[in-house]
C-alpha cells in the first residue's frame, strides 16, 4: 500500500501541522519508504499473542498503582503560567472558541 498526497494532508490536519508544498512533497516518498520496511511485519502470524503494552508484563502481572483520594496540590497559578503565551485574569487566552 502506498500513501497518497491526500493521505498526507488528511493526517497533517489530524495532527494540526501546516505543511508547505515542499514539505508534503518531501514527506510522501519518505513515509512510503518507511512503510515499505513495515510490510515485513504484516507477514508474521500473531494470532493468540497478547500485545505488550508495558514491558514488565513480559515476566510479571503489572497492575496500575492507585493514589489515595487526597488533595496534595496548592495554588501555583503564577508559577505554572510563567511560560504561557497569553494570560489575562488568570485565564489562558486563545482565538475565539466556536461551539
Amino acid at each position: 500500500m502506498a500513501l497518497t498526497p491526500q493521505d498526507v494532508s488528511r493526517i497533517a490536519h489530524l495532527a494540526r501541522l501546516e505543511l508547505q508544498e515542499a514539505e508534503s512533497a518531501a514527506l510522501l516518498p519518505q513515509l512510503n519508504g518507511f512503510f515499505s520496511i513495515v510490510e515485513q511485519m504484516s507477514a508474521v502470524d500473531t494470532r493468540g499473542v497478547e500485545p505488550l503494552y508495558t514491558p514488565l508484563s513480559t515476566v510479571q502481572q503489572v497492575a496500575l498503582r492507585l493514589r489515595e483520594d487526597r488533595v496534595t496540590e496548592s495554588n501555583q497559578r503564577e508559577l505554572n503560567q510563567r511560560s504561557a503565551p497569553a494570560v489575562e485574569d488568570g485565564l489562558f487566552l486563545v482565538p475565539k472558541v466556536i461551539e
Binding site: 511485519m41 504484516s42 508474521v44 500473531t46 499473542v49 497478547e50 500485545p51 505488550l52 503494552y53 513480559t58
Partner: peptide, 10 residues
Amino acid sequence: QAQKLRRMIA
C-alpha cells in the same frame, strides 16, 4: 500488530 510482535520479541 506491532505490540503483539513486541511481546514475541520480549
